[in-house]
Nucleic acid binder design. Sequence first.
DNA 1: AGGTATTCACATGAAACTATTCTCTGAGTTAGG
DNA 2: TAACTCAGAGAATAGTTTCATGTGAATACCTGT
Length: 401
Amino acid sequence: MGAQLNKIFDNAMNSSLFKNKAVLQANFVPESIPHRDAQVEQVAGILVPILRSERPSNLFVYGKTGTGKTLSVQYVRQELQKKAVELGVDIRIEYINCKLKKVADTEYRILAALIQQMGGKVAETGLPTEQVYSKFIEMIDDKKQVVIIIFDEIDQIIKKISDDFLYSLTRLNSELSKAQICLIGISNDVTFLENIDPRVRSSLGEEEIVFPPYNALQLQDILNERCKLAFKDGVVDDGVISKCAAFAAREHGDARRALDLLRIAGELSEREGSAKIDLKYIDAANDKIEKDKIFDIVSTAPKQFQLILYSILKLTREKKIESIFTGDVFNYYQDLCKRTHNEILTQRRISDIIGETDMLGLTNANVISKGRHGRTKEIKLAFADHLLDKIESILIESLGL
DNA sequence: AGGTATTCACATGAAACTATTCTCTGAGTTAGG
DNA sequence: TAACTCAGAGAATAGTTTCATGTGAATACCTGT
């Protein structure tokens, strides 16, 4: 009996296609970054003065998601730190991801996170902003040093807070007597710089580096490299890699997406006991990614949001009539709320929520004018038909209908 | 027929309000010396 | 006496309401032929 079980376990172990799955996960930092030599060099070139304890120029990095921005910057950071230890120079490079909600979506949460990372005592906040600032200054300014702060997804804080925050940071240098700080902003919104205070723009954008999207061939290289580490030999065909690359290239050359595809295709193959990764699993993986994304959004959305989405969904199904307008949704929604004893929000808010569904890609809502019959949004569901049932049941369950 | 004015049904903005969540403070409590 | 807990206070946030203003084009209304 025990032997038999063991056999099963052994089989399970052996049938694994993976050598090291972590290689395909998002936070893996490889030893080399293919096709990003130029960018890495630029970044390094700009930051290198820190090794002489001089303040590097502020740097602004942008490019679409999955173009290796974060990776390259992190890589340079690591190398700089190694080198600094070697040379006995004291440097500090802090990294903050502004996208992680818990970490930072407030001026002082960011500062608090920074302070904490630098070994300061935990969130110190009485009269918020002011005090945290002085605490922060105090911490940095205790000795002569250059501190580099990396803000990943920096556009997020600007959206959440205002650009005052960045302005105060850039101005902070004048308040520091011994230390100096240098800011690095990473953003995937290229238009982001255009919408911020010119003063901030000029100081943050002292240097700029653009990360272009990878093309399909480059993606293949990247995938190939990771495959060697991630999978056992002979598991992955060339065809598989080029297909993953092609899929991701279509999505603005997103390497992260390509790696996800590969990993999930691997997992699917493995689950089905296949000895190789078959092309068909890539399509399945692609579906799965899309699906998971949508399901996740839908199931974690706030109640009112779900109510609206449910209303749109129901209207789409019941009415075979061409298009749905804001007013229709609002009416259905009101009934729905009455039936289910939910609070009814104003039309103003509903309008905004519909806008949100559009932003998240769940619907397409376009403002159209029906002439004499007013202006409104024309709303259509944006996901594939075969997901409708599943989404409906998610909503029904989550709303307790 | 061709031009102009209206008008609808919301969109879009700004400001104010509300409930809830954080964090800190300081009083009161507890335990150890 | 130091450490610890816990209620209350002040501030921040997210979500929403209220008030105000904007808007594209189908239609109603002219106008002169």
